[in-house]
Write a protein that binds this DNA or RNA. Structure first.
Lengths: 190, 190
DNA sequence: GCTAAAACCTAGGAGGCATAGGTTTGCGGA
DNA sequence: TCCGCAAACCTATGCCTCCTAGGTTTTAGC
C-alpha cells in the first residue's frame, strides 16, 4: 500500500497545524497518526517522544514568528516600531494560537541556543527598542515589561478572559500608548 | 477497613495541594485516589469529572488569592496599594504555583458569577486603583494592562523563561515603577 | 436495631504514550 | 537486473489515565 512518506519535518508541521486547531496542550500522537493513516508506533521512527515533538514544534513556530517580527519592524523606529512589533506578535497569537503557545513552551537552554528562531526573536526584541535610547540594565527591564504584558494579554485574550464589555481593540491601543509612554519617560537607574 | 472520609472539599483541597507540587495541568484523579488509598472510581462520588475538579480548585484558589489581595491593599492607596497588590499576587504565584495556575483557568461565566473569590478579586482590582482617579473606560484599559503584565510576568518567571542574568527582583521593581508612572501620567481618552 | 444515604468497591472499556521486534518498500550499486 | 540495506511502516504488548455501570459496606439518625 502507498506509504505516507513521513518525515520528522512533516510530522512537526502536522503537529503545528493540529496545535492551531485543538491547542498546543492537546496535540496527540494518536491523532497525528490517524491523520497520516498510520499506526501510532510509526511516528516514533521520526520523533523520539511526545516531548521531542513539542520541542520541534516550538522551534519551528519560533522561526515563523521571527520572520513576522522581522518584517514588521523593518525600517521603523520608536512608536512605529513598537506598534509594528506588538501587532505582528498579536496577529500571530490570534491566527496561529497553537504555534504561539508553542513559542512559550519552556525549552532547555541548549535547544534555545540551537534555534535560530528563538535567537532572532531575542535579537529583534532588543533591536526594535533601540530608538528609545535606554541603557542597560534598564533596557532589559523594559523588555521584560513588554514581554510580560504581551504574553499576558494574548493569553487572556485567547481564553476569552476579558469579560468587561469595553472594546478590546481600543484597550489594546491604549495599552500600546501607555507602554510607549513608559519607555519614553523611563527613569533610568541612578 | 477504615474509610478515608472523602468529601468534595477534601478532594478539592488535595487536588490543590497536588497542583502546587506537580502543576495544575498535571493533576490526576489516579494520583489523588492513590493519595487517599482509594480506587479511582471512588472519587466520582464527590466530583463529576476531571473538569469539575479543576473548576472546584479554581474557585477555591480564587478565594485564597482574594484574601491575600484584600489584606495587602487594606488601608493603602496609590503606589503603595499598587505595590502591595502586585507583590501579594506575585507571592501567591510563587508559593502556590498550582493554585495560581488554577486562578487563570478559563471558567464559564456562571461559575465566575457564583464564585465569591473571582468576584472579590475583580472588586479589589478596581478598588485599589481608585487613587489614580482614572475615569472609565480608561480605568478598564489600565486594569487590563496591569492584569496582562502581572500574568505574563508570573508565567514567564514560573517557567524560568527570563534567561538574562539581570536580577529579576530588580526588574520587577522597575516594572512596578513603570506601571505606577503609566497610571500617574495616563492620557485620558478625549 | 433498622434503614437510607453516603462512601467505597470491582469490572471493564476507550484512548493515549511508549518499547520491542518483525516486515515491507524503495533506492543505489554491482 | 538483481541484491542488499536503510528507511518506513507494521503488530503486539504493557502501562497509565479517565470514566461508567452496578454492587457492597459503613455510618448516622430515628
Amino acid at each position: 500500500m502507498a506509504r505516507a512518506g513521513l518525515t520528522a519535518d512533516r510530522v512537526t508541521e502536522a503537529a503545528a497545524d493540529l496545535a492551531d486547531v485543538v491547542g498546543f496542550d492537546n496535540i496527540t500522537l494518536s491523532a497525528l497518526a490517524r491523520g497520516f493513516g498510520v499506526a501510532d508506533a510509526s511516528l516514533y521512527s521520526h520523533v523520539k517522544n511526545m516531548r521531542d515533538l513539542r520541542t520541534r514544534v516550538a522551534v519551528r513556530a519560533a522561526g515563523e514568528l521571527a520572520d513576522r517580527l522581522a518584517t514588521a519592524t523593518a525600517g521603523r523606529a520608536g512608536k512605529e516600531s513598537l506598534a509594528g512589533f506588538a501587532n505582528a506578535w498579536r496577529d500571530f497569537a490570534r491566527h496561529c494560537p497553537g504555534r504561539y503557545q508553542a513559542t512559550q513552551m519552556p525549552v532547555e537552554p541548549e535547544v534555545v541556543a540551537g534555534s535560530s528562531g528563538h535567537q532572532r526573536i531575542m535579537a529583534i526584541t532588543y533591536a526594535h527598542l533601540s530608538g528609545y535610547g535606554l541603557p542597560e540594565p534598564d533596557l532589559t527591564d523594559a523588555i521584560r515589561l513588554l514581554r510580560s504584558t504581551y504574553q499576558g494579554f494574548f493569553a487572556i485574550e485567547a481564553s476569552s478572559g476579558f469579560g468587561h464589555p469595553r472594546d478590546l481593540q481600543a484597550s489594546w491601543e491604549k495599552i500600546l500608548d501607555a507602554l510607549d509612554n513608559a519607555l519614553t519617560h523611563w527613569r533610568v537607574s541612578s
